[in-house]
Nucleic acid binder design. Sequence first.
DNA 1: TTGAAAGCGTTACCAC
DNA 2: GTGGTAACGCTTTCAA
Lengths: 336, 336
Amino acid sequence: MSIIAVRIKDIAIKCGVSEGTVDRALNNRGGIKEETKKMILKTAKEMNYQPNHLARCLAKGKTNTIGVIGINLKNTFFCMLIESIEAEARKHGYFMELILSKNDKKSELEAINHFAVRKVDGLIIFPVGREEDLTDILLGLDIPLVSVYNRIGCGKIPHIDVDCRKIMRNAVKHMVNKGYESIWYMDWGIERQREKKINIFSMEQRRCGYDEGLEMYDLGEPHVMTEYDEEKLLDIAKDAKEKHKKTAILCAYDNIAIKTLEIYRKNEIKVPEDIGIMGFDNIEMLDRISPRICSVDCKIRTIGQNAFNMLLAQINNEENIHDCVVDYSFTEGETL
Amino acid sequence: MSIIAVRIKDIAIKCGVSEGTVDRALNNRGGIKEETKKMILKTAKEMNYQPNHLARCLAKGKTNTIGVIGINLKNTFFCMLIESIEAEARKHGYFMELILSKNDKKSELEAINHFAVRKVDGLIIFPVGREEDLTDILLGLDIPLVSVYNRIGCGKIPHIDVDCRKIMRNAVKHMVNKGYESIWYMDWGIERQREKKINIFSMEQRRCGYDEGLEMYDLGEPHVMTEYDEEKLLDIAKDAKEKHKKTAILCAYDNIAIKTLEIYRKNEIKVPEDIGIMGFDNIEMLDRISPRICSVDCKIRTIGQNAFNMLLAQINNEENIHDCVVDYSFTEGETL
DNA sequence: TTGAAAGCGTTACCAC
DNA sequence: GTGGTAACGCTTTCAA
């Protein structure tokens, strides 16, 4: 490996041909004598030629890089999603530049600007900002876009996710079928997010689904806990036991379910005998904990793969890219 | 936002000045009349000028991007590390391109090649390949490098991590001080990794530390479980109980500790009364599980920050960059 | 089948 | 202070 990178020009000089010819050989672009080509290729290899990607991108106006604006890596759900996007991208010869918005709108705007300037070939975004703040900016970029998780762009930006609302409705049904008469809903922290005026589309959908499920199965008014509250959790269990009312806790995401389960275990409340628990996302950690928490398997890898492929379709100028709703299934566990 | 991007040339024409002058204004490079500058800046803003990053990089020979070759995002430890690298990079005006090697040596080489071609300003690598395979290639890149987690480069590539070996030695001491007489060690999966001939430096260091600790405190021969084995775990606990020998399990990383704890809880073996457990890394999940597992807090954020700063120092041509050993502490929990 | 030259958008340097 | 122009390394087009 030489310190000074070898250029097409260097190869051209060494071979006594023009740069154009070297290019033809390197990118096997026909219109070149087989003999010359072989010779050039051999020399290039000897000189350990490595194309300068920057220059190539500048000339071609294409970067083979996609930008991903994720939220953070604290939630295993996001990690798996990002892992699968990266894997799929790489499979198709693309690379991923990752910026984490950390649920901060300013940070998200910076990231968008960064990717615009970088001329990435496409952008996958987990929106944090809301409709009115973000849509025009994103569409103004005039590059292929896909939104994941939170929706945005009033139908103009292809979106992919599971149908959280339907899932939650069906989760309620699932629980009703198992004989539950009272269902609590947990989405700790949601109000704080709402106050920060960030996009909570996905969480709201989940909540709506719960509300609708209750109504469909005539389970009365919603019981929602929006902040972690150990006392309250214990009260719920106690109440269920006293009134002999079969009760379960439906959680907006798995980490809530894990925490809830732990609180009950610590206080010797039996799950699922005394109270049922159900999570959402089916993160891998659930396999390490017993009782195995029932959850919703969102086919995260499929979401990631499809997200990239929807982007790729746009990059390749395919028409008719529409939203994608990914399949799901309930995972049987031991907490319902 | 126009579809056709505005170039310096366009501004120059509109302002009736040369490209050089526009550049002086844009990058406030002195030697320009305040008046002209203001006018140019105003026009640039009006035209919504966005510099073309590719062109800029090509001209300057600097990308303001660092490459990170991570292993995967399955382990929260890696996630936090990567999060903190990204945050620190951004704080200093750098961006992160992330490739995951997935513990695959071929994949790692592809990533290295990618970053070389991309002319990133520096590379942070979590090595998967071993010394002999990787060192020359990396040094041949002739770009700033930092290795994290697994060590590599015989002292020629700055490395950062906690001192796993010392920590494990002290973990043994910690346990001895708490009255434990027998200490088992768990590093499930290690043999399979060894067979694949991938770099297991960090895991080996931990194991060494355990061995040394045993010797220092005269605890007899090592007892190691290299694959998950529920039966065996139960035997260990049973044995400890029967022989009234205060026993603990030292785990190579937290996920093993979590799984072990669950096995015991499921089988009604009391932790820490019947057997003690200690993890390593102190991932956030531990806060959601009770009893709170004792672990080693490795100051992951500090590792990430320093990793970037060590790279930055090299980018800025500072001399004397040496390895960095990050501080740690034992987190008190309820499992010892 | 090949060469020559004009881009791609910036930056940097040398004249004036 | 400012203009002009040659880099940066590659691709692409037109002529020969």
